[in-house]
Structures are given as structure tokens and as C-alpha cells.
Design a protein around this nucleic acid. Structure first.
Lengths: 249, 249
DNA sequence: GTTGACCCTAACGTAACGTCAGACCTTATA
DNA sequence: TATAAGGTCTGACGTTACGTTAGGGTCAAC
């Protein structure tokens, strides 16, 4: 089912301009566009939009939201759980503020005395606390750089890159029961290495091997990779290790 | 007790730049400034700042906050009570969002089904709901215009105007036991009328009388006026009515 | 009397849209 | 089938609430 801007705006309570804006900055581009250029939002788009709004409510910048959503480690279910935690924390903060307010009311009536510090409890919101957690989960500097490279190529390039990557993964996944040391596999892994390098990463052999290890050490990576096929993460880790060793002699 | 910017910033959790900003736009100017231009915030300033932060938390624009704080009908205790209501409502909204999130988590697992509308419950935040209430309390168009006039004259002018108004009120309050029909009182009321007109109001005799009625019909006005002396509001209403009648008759 | 922590203004930058303007698209109805 | 009403598009400039240097004065301590 496809929806036009107005419908989405009414459904979600955000403005049409906001949808335009999110499209422009590449945060949420509708899955389809008509001949005439009318945006058509799919159900998947709505899901993404919901994610965006949750993150926005938590005080994330749109740029950061985009990075998170596009991060290879991103996992929707995990995000939802983390967001729940964060929202609960936000509610706790709000409760502290309400407490402060109630104390202030009594203070104004002269019923109690408040210290200056107490008068501002709950306000301290120093550069959102959830960011730390989010960074731990979905973004270290390496990922940031990768996203930077993606961002630099604009929306069209991004889409292409994403497709390219997926195609490569599918190709590799199809080989996951072969010997990772075989020429065919090593050839494909070379392509993967080249692809990463082309994105501005410049992975040294060691780093390339390390990345492979990450695929099996970090279960979030593992889960995501294994969507391409059971044991794909492990297969990649092995193949990447072999390539690294070969390159280093 | 006077505090420098850094201290205030640390106490409240807002940045120094924000304090500078609030000073610049005339939202919160420190009660004192040293020779060298160092800002010195008093306890009263902190109280005001707390008010500002509460309103800000509720999504008010700084400009609007300034208008409210400077509105003649503004009453701190009442504001605190209203803010409590608003914060509770905000928490309720947050609860709805958390509910939505939890449902979404179950939906993602396939445990339940959600309608599209449900997926966005709690987000709808159409131009803050508290504004309505605040407008009912502290600002109709007339007040807005008055504040507009005030704003137009810049911070220095504002201060002067405020002082001028206070001086006039004190003068009138001192006469509140005299006959409102007396020449002395009518003379002073004339000054008050002229003062209002000079602020861009152009009060017709009827409007001037109406304003006087407002002083006794709206208890918030009454309370504020009576701070200048018991029965001051009523006295003003009578004197203003008499002036109006004289002008028309 | 100089160092380091703190303060100032001025001015430009940024994020996330709001708000037109001018033009094209779609659809219900006469 | 024409046409009016309502939706949508892309610029492009405006706005709010600060962040971020840059360049320079102030104050207390050693």
C-alpha cells in the first residue's frame, strides 16, 4: 500500500515540509516516486519513519539518526529495546522535573526551603545521555567514517553502493559451503576488500582480518550477516583471514 | 548573593552561550553588571531562569516565554501550577509513546498486529497543546500588541517603560483612598491613559473603561494590581470609568 | 608581574524546519 | 470534455536557538 505525503503527514502528525526535508537530506526517501514526481511511501518507509521519530524524541540529530539507521550493525528490534530504556529514562527525568516543580510551589508558599541546586534538578540534559549508549551499539569512529564516505556520494550513489554491497554479499553467501581457501572464494573476497577500500576505508591486511573477526565476535554483526545464510559470518571471517595472510606472505 | 555566568551555567546545566543569548534577546538580563561588564545573576534572576526552563521544556518559544513573563497578568504561583499540569500531560504523552513502542516490539515479533494509526500514537504534538492554555491565561491579542510595542523599543526602553509604569502605579496607588472623581486623581489617570496610548495602544474612551473593568473582572489582574495596595484595582477601575465618561460626555 | 582561569563582544555557522511563490498534476463535477 | 478545486512539486529565502571560533580584556594567586 502506497501513501502520498498528506496521508503520511496526517497519520504521523508531522508536516509535509518535514517529509520533504527528510527526503532532501536522504534520511527518508520514499520507496517509489510517480512519473510526475509524487512521493509514494510504502509500509517499510513508515516503519523507518517511526524509528526516526523515536530517535528524534530522544534528542538525536537527524544526521546521527541517518547514520544509525544505515549502520551495518543496526538492528531494529534491538533499537526498539534500547529506545524503550531511553524513553523510560526520559520519563524519569520528567518525573524529577515535576518533583522540582512541586517543591518549588511549596517553596514559593514558604512551606519549605530549597537549595539552589535543588531548584534545577531534572533540567540537566547535557548532550543527550542516550547518545553514549547508541554510540556503543551502532557507531564507533570506523563506522562513522564509512557513513561519511556513503554520505559523500549522495543519495543516488548511496543506493547504488548499498545494492552493490548486497549483491556482493549474496554472491559470497552462495559460496559459503565452499572452501574459503579456494580461488573462487578468494577472488570474491578480493572484490569485497576492494569495495571497502573504494569507500575510503583503506583497510590494511591486518585491519581487514580484524574486520572479519568482528563479524563473529560481535553478535550483532553475526546476526545481520547470517541473514544472508546460516554460517555466513563465520565463513566471511575465515575467508578474510586467509586473504589477509596471503597478502602478508 | 551574586553569581557569575559559569556558576549559573554549572548550577542549571545550560551553557554560558545560552545565558549570553538570553541576555541579548532580553529574556533574562542579569540584575547587575560589573564595571568590566561581567554579568552578575541574583537569586531573583535564578527564579526567572527556572521559570524560563520550565516553559522551554514545555516547548514554548523563547519569544513567547518573554511575553508571558512580562505580561501584566503573569503570576508565578499560578504559572507553577499550570506548568505542573502541562508537565503531567507531557508525561502522559510520553507514556503513550512508550506504550506504542512496546506494542511495536511485540508487533515486530509477530505476536500482535498493529494498525498504522497505532504505530504513531503519542507522536502527534501539533503545535504545543499548552500554548492554548497559556494564551487563555496570560495573553490575548491586546496583551500581545502591548508586548509588541514594548519589544519595539529595545531593552533599554523596556526597562525605562517598566519603571515609568511602576512609578505611575505607585503614584496612583498612593491616592487610592481619595475620591476617584477628584481633579488630582483624574489628572493622574490622564497620565496613565496617555502612557498607554504612547505605547501604541490608542485606547478609545470605551476601551479605556473596558480595560478598567478588566482590572476587577479578571482576578489575575486584580491580584497583580493589588500588590500596589489594597483595593487598588477597584480604585483604578472606578477612576478610569469616570475619565471615560467625562471624555465622552 | 605574569600566568592561568574566567569574562566580554562580534560575527559567522548550523540544524530543522516554516513559509511563500510559481508551476504542474489529478479528479470530481458540470 | 472542460474546468475548478484541491494536492503536489521544486526552489529559495526566513527563522529559532543556540554552537563555535576569534580576538581581546579581567582577576586572583603566586
Amino acid at each position: 500500500m502506497l501513501r502520498k505525503v498528506k496521508e503520511v503527514a496526517e497519520l504521523t502528525g508531522i508536516s509535509i515540509r518535514t517529509l520533504h526535508h527528510y527526503d532532501r537530506i536522504g534520511l527518508l526517501s520514499p520507496e517509489q516516486v510517480t512519473e510526475a514526481g509524487y512521493r509514494q511511501y510504502s509500509d517499510r518507509d513508515l516503519e523507518t519513519l517511526q524509528q526516526i521519530l523515536f530517535f528524534r524524541e530522544l534528542g538525536f540529530q537527524l544526521k546521527r539518526i541517518g547514520e544509525i539507521l544505515k549502520s551495518p550493525e543496526f538492528d531494529r528490534e534491538e533499537a526498539l529495546l534500547l529506545q524503550r530504556e531511553a524513553l523510560l529514562e526520559k520519563r524519569a527525568r520528567l518525573d524529577r522535573m515535576i518533583g522540582t516543580l512541586e517543591k518549588t510551589i511549596q517553596d514559593a508558599k514558604g512551606e519549605i526551603e530549597m537549595t539552589d541546586k535543588e531548584k534545577f534538578e531534572g533540567f540537566d540534559f547535557t548532550n543527550n545521555p542516550y547518545e553514549d549508549e547508541a554510540r556503543r551499539r551502532w557507531g564507533d569512529e570506523a563506522v562513522d567514517r564509512s557513513n561519511q564516505a556513503l554520505a559523500n556520494m549522495g543519495p543516488e550513489g548511496q543506493k547504488q553502493t548499498g545494492e552493490q554491497m548486497e549483491a556482493l554479499f549474496r554472491k559470497l553467501a552462495a559460496m559459503r559451503n565452499q572452501d574459503p581457501d579456494s580461488e573462487e572464494v578468494q577472488q570474491a573476497i578480493g572484490e569485497w576488500h576492494a569495495f571497502l577500500n573504494s569507500m575510503g576505508h583503506t583497510y590494511s591486511p591486518e585491519a581487514f582480518k580484524g574486520l572479519g573477526q568482528l563479524y563473529i565476535q560481535d553478535e550483532r554483526f553475526t546476526r545481520n550477516m547470517d541473514k544472508f545464510g546460516d554460517g555466513f559470518a563465520r565463513f566471511m571471517a575465515e575467508a578474510m583471514g586467509i586473504r589477509s595472510d596471503r597478502l602478508q606472505g
